[in-house]
Computed example of a mutant assay.
Amino acid sequence: MLRRLYDWVLSLAARKSAEVWLAVIAFVESSVFLVPADVLYLPMALARPDRAYRYALVATVASVLGGIAGWMLGYFAYDQLARPILEFYGKAEAFDQLRAGESGVELVLLMLVTSGFAHLPPIKVVTILSGVVAFPLGWFVLSAVIARGLRFFLLAWLLRTYGDEIRHFIEKRLGLIAGAVAVLLIVIFLVLKYAL
């Protein structure tokens, strides 16, 4: 099922309405959807490199708005809506572990690492968690704009600079690099927190 969903999202890049679909996918990815917006963004930006930054802006704005929707789900409707969504994706246990160990600064770092680089845990888990713990919405939006903007605009720059040859690198190795960066940021955070 996941592969069919992935292929369907990828097929949207060829449509005239691709930019609208990019906004829709980026929005729902941040609150309830499984497939990342990158799947649609990459072929769109490769097909139209002159619009790579425009697509990055669309994806960033829609992703932040979707993150706000996820925050609202967590804040206003956790038991009724958010918990069943997390259970559907098999993320309820991961959510409970995050919920048990959060604090303000750690949550901001987690959001930045998660949404900006690694998708670990998925952004929808972090946005819902932020609402459940009533993380300040202004700080949440600011961190989401920075993290998601960095992700999409970095992809735009890479695609504009290196073209199609970077696509295979991004698709195959970005997860590993993102994970390494995430681990490095967490280690730096822990060192700063416990050594100072």
Rank of each mutant, 00 (worst) to 15 (best):
A14D: 15
A18W: 02
V39L: 15
G66M: 07
A45N: 02
V108M: 11
R15E: 15
S30G: 08
V39F: 14
E102Q: 12
A77L: 11
R51N: 07
L34S: 10
P49V: 14
K16C: 02
M44L: 15
P43T: 03
F135N: 00
G66N: 06
A14C: 13
F135K: 03
I85Q: 04
A77M: 13
I128T: 02
K124S: 09
L65D: 04
V9N: 03
S63I: 08
V61W: 01
L81K: 03
T60G: 05
L98P: 06
F88W: 11
L42G: 00
G101P: 01
P36G: 08
E87I: 07
F88S: 10
I25Q: 03
S130E: 12
E102V: 14
V126L: 10
F27R: 06
V133S: 01
L57Y: 08
K124V: 00
G66F: 07
A92W: 09
Y53G: 05
R54Q: 13
V28H: 10
T127K: 01
S11I: 12
A18F: 01
W21N: 11
M72G: 12
I85S: 13
S31H: 10
L2P: 00
W71S: 03
L57F: 14
P36I: 09
F76T: 14
V20R: 08
F117W: 06
M44G: 12
K91N: 15
V20C: 03
A13L: 13
T60N: 04
L12D: 06
A18N: 04
M44V: 06
R83K: 15
V108A: 14
V126D: 02
W8D: 03
S115D: 13
P84C: 11
G66W: 08
L107I: 10
A37Q: 09
L40I: 02
A52S: 07
